[in-house]
Structure formats: structure tokens, C-alpha cells
């Protein structure tokens, strides 16, 4: 995939993200942020590739650390968001 195409993807994703996220009410801003924490853990994909390709022990360790960091982000991010979202209840008592 060419760099130009990647730059185009970055621009489009950012603009789409901007539009969609603008609609999230301030009520949910904290869960939104922790949800974004989880998504920023997407780096785990890069970490897996980098760690798999590492050839020295030192680099492997750095790759391992990257996987751990990113996985914490993914798991804790989604879980904590879930915990928070579950707390928001309607006054109607439904659900």
C-alpha cells in the first residue's frame, strides 16, 4: 500500500471520526475517552508484527513490552468503558 494512499486514509478516517464523535453527548465524554483508550490499543497489531520480526533478545523484549502495553489498553479500555456505560440508567427505570 502506497504512502499516498495511507495519507488519504488518515485524512478520511480523521474527518469521519470528527463527524461521528461530535455527536457524542457530553454526558458520555468519559466513557468516550476510555473507549478511545481501547481503540488506541490498535497499536497491538503493530506490536505483534514488530515483536515477531525482532531478531535480538533486547528487541524481542521491547516488542514483548509493546504487546503488553497495548493489550492492557485494549482490555482495560473496553472493560472499564463497559463498566461505566452500564451505570447510566434512565429515570424511567426501564432496563
Amino acid at each position: 500500500m502506497s504512502y499516498l494512499l495511507l495519507i488519504a486514509i488518515l485524512v478520511v478516517a480523521t474527518l469521519l471520526g470528527y463527524r461521528v464523535i461530535s455527536e457524542v453527548p457530553s454526558l458520555l465524554h468519559t466513557p468516550l475517552m476510555s473507549g478511545m483508550n481501547a481503540l488506541s490499543g490498535i497499536t497491538v497489531v503493530g506490536a505483534l508484527l514488530a515483536a515477531a520480526g525482532a531478531i535480538t533478545t533486547g528487541r524481542r523484549f521491547l516488542g514483548f513490552l509493546a504487546i503488553v502495553f497495548a493489550t492492557i489498553n485494549v482490555v482495560a479500555g473496553f472493560l472499564v468503558t463497559h463498566r461505566m456505560l452500564k451505570m447510566f440508567r434512565s429515570g424511567g427505570g426501564s432496563e
Binding site: 500500500m1 504512502y3 494512499l5 495511507l6 486514509i9 488518515l10 485524512v11 478520511v12 478516517a13 480523521t14 474527518l15 469521519l16 471520526g17 470528527y18 464523535i21 468516550l32 475517552m33 478511545m36 483508550n37 481503540l39 488506541s40 490498535i42 497499536t43 497489531v45 503493530g46 508484527l49 514488530a50
Partner: peptide, 29 residues
């Protein structure tokens, strides 16, 4: 934190990192 992920997508040539990193970057922005 999103922007960093997006940029990491370039040397890796991974569109998923670029796109999702961009979304997170936009959200924080």
C-alpha cells in the same frame, strides 16, 4: 495516543493502524 498509533501505521504500511489512530486522534482533538 491515537496520533502515535496512526503514525506507526506508516512504516508498517498498515491501513488499520492509520485509520483507527486517526479516529482516536480526532476524538481527543
Amino acid at each position: 495516543s491515537g496520533v502515535a498509533g496512526a503514525i506507526a501505521g506508516f512504516p508498517l504500511k498498515n491501513p488499520l493502524l492509520v485509520a483507527v489512530g486517526g479516529i482516536v486522534g480526532a476524538s481527543g482533538f
